[in-house]
Design a protein around this nucleic acid. Structure first.
Lengths: 192, 192
DNA sequence: ACCTGAACACCGTTCAAGT
DNA sequence: ACCTGAACACCGTTCAAGT
């Protein structure tokens, strides 16, 4: 009834990614996952060399999907200023939804998670810097403002996601108003 | 020779705090610590109910000492603007030295670490906001700028500490110049 | 008052044997 | 080609017994 078919490596990776979102990195555990998949833990080692390889597979799934999702949602907006605003808003809101990312950040000391986050951060940081350059700031100034914007909204979204209720920005007009006020500061002295 | 005397709960807590700084939260492990202290792991349970209680003791030690250290180093500076600058610089530099804090942030999904970090973040955030109010901004604006400053330097220090080499701010004048440029943006439109 | 030593549970890993 | 089942290592936890 439950399932007759044999499992594949992808089945395990998908289950691991789910577990990551639900219970964090430590929830990617061979024995519990085997129970959930209805097999014995011994069978896991047919598909993967060890737990580390399973974690790596789950991380690869997440990286691919989260990157695609973020690019797709931003490509629709051509105006750089509006894009920055969208980036801010989405980073803050999405951070609360993508529990896999929340859990990944919380487990950033893991030797597999570390390089993954490094790649993701690097990509996002330079994307932000590029936007500030497109707006008209010099490369030097774009690096400063972009770095500031990136750290500010990254920190904002991380704190909001991991420590809900700690940021006082909801008192006024909510996230939208906060994003606008931050942007106002970040764009002060804009050339052109 | 090595040691004749019996151990106390504080000995275990100190050893745990050390292990936290060296190997992260998971390095607070009963068996390895027992070996390091020259006793069997069974003896640990005379002093603590379980591993969780040991972790809690180590965290309490860290919270007390790190809070004291930060207050002491800032109390010397009376000028609010200079204090903000000092806060920035120290946050970025100290983050690279206090490996216990780095490891705590990396393990922020732990149910004991979470409330600790919440307290610490809350304290630091409102301290920053207060400084912006002292400078002359309205409470509302101080909350926005303070939140922005806090997330910006918090994110900066976290990324610098955990992903060295990723932030491009070293190309120009180094951290000092970056802090100054961020402050310039954050203080734009300052009243009075 | 503090420690030993043996026992058990849980999870990662191996591997011979099954279908 | 994929899975079982038993074994072992490692670490957390318990507890009776030692000093």
């Amino acid at each position: 009834m439950t399932q007759e078919r044999r499992l594949t490596a992808e089945d395990w990776a998908e289950a691991a990614l789910e577990a990551l979102g639900e219970g964090g990195l430590s929830a990617i555990a061979v024995e519990p996952l085997a129970a959930r998949l209805g097999v014995t833990k011994g069978s896991f080692y047919w598909h993967f060399a060890n737990r580390e390889a399973l974690v790596a597979a789950a991380l690869a799934l997440w990286e691919q999907r989260s990157t695609e999702a973020k690019i797709a949602s931003l490509n629709a907006e051509p105006d750089p200023v509006a894009r920055i605003r969208l980036l801010f808003s989405q980073a803050i809101e999405l951070a609360g939804r993508d529990s896999a990312e929340i859990n990944l950040r919380a487990a950033s000391d893991n030797p597999l998670v570390q390089p993954l986050l490094r790649r993701v951060i690097q990509r996002r940081l330079w994307y932000t810097i590029d936007l500030f350059e497109q707006i008209g700031f010099s490369r030097e100034e774009a690096i400063r403002r972009g770095a500031m914007a990136f750290t500010a909204y990254g920190g904002q979204s991380e704190i909001t996601a991991r420590f809900p209720g700690i940021m006082p920005i909801d008192e006024g007009g909510g996230i939208g108003a906060y994003v606008d006020s931050v942007l106002e500061v970040l764009l002060s002295g804009r050339p052109g």
